[in-house]
Simulated assay, not measured.
Amino acid sequence: MPSETASALLDKKPPEDVPPAARGMNPQVRMRLQQLAAFAGLVIITIFFAIAGDNFFTYDNLVNNVLLSSVLIGVLALGTTFVIVTGGIDLSIGWGIALTGMAAGTFLITWDLPLGLGLLMALLVGLVIGLVNGFNVSILGMPPFIATLAMMLVCQGLPLVISDNGATIYTNTQFPPYADLSGGELIPNFPNAVLIFLGLAVIAWVLLNRTVFGRYAVSIGSNEEATELSGINVRKWKLVIYGVAGVFTACAGILSSARIGASPTAGGGMELQAIAAVVIGGTSLAGGKGTIVGSVIGALIIGVLNNGLQIMGVPQEWQYVILGVVILAAVYVDMLRKRSAEVV
Rank of each mutant, 00 (worst) to 15 (best):
E16K: 07
A77N: 00
G281K: 09
S7R: 12
T100K: 12
V278A: 01
M270H: 03
A341F: 14
E4A: 08
I322W: 15
D60A: 11
R30Q: 10
L117R: 04
W95G: 02
M25Y: 02
P264T: 15
V247G: 10
L123R: 00
L36W: 12
N55Q: 11
V344T: 14
A277M: 04
L67H: 06
G101S: 10
G116V: 10
V247K: 07
S256K: 08
I220Y: 08
L123C: 02
Y332E: 11
K13M: 03
C251A: 01
A286V: 10
A201R: 00
I220D: 02
E228W: 11
V247P: 11
T171Y: 13
L285E: 02
W111T: 12
D11C: 04
L198R: 04
M142Y: 11
V154D: 10
N65T: 08
G294Q: 05
D180R: 14
D11F: 07
I146L: 12
I169P: 02
A201E: 02
G267P: 05
Y170S: 09
Y332N: 11
I322L: 13
I292K: 04
G246P: 03
A217I: 06
P188Y: 03
S92L: 01
Q35P: 07
G246M: 03
V43L: 11
A299K: 00
V279L: 03
F107W: 14
S70V: 10
L72A: 06
A21H: 06
T58R: 12
F39G: 01
V279S: 05
T249P: 05
V128K: 14
N307G: 07
G41R: 09
F248D: 04
G157Y: 12
P159E: 10
I196R: 01
P176D: 13
N223A: 08
V212G: 01
F197Q: 11
N223L: 07
P14H: 09
Q35V: 14
T81P: 05
G246T: 04
A8I: 14
L328E: 11
L67M: 11
G134H: 02
A104F: 15
M102W: 08
G268E: 14
A258F: 14
A98G: 01
V314H: 07
V128R: 13
E16W: 11
S219E: 03
T46H: 06
L140G: 00
A299M: 01
I129S: 03
T227Q: 06
V296K: 00
G157Q: 06
A250E: 00
L140A: 01
T100M: 09
A122D: 14
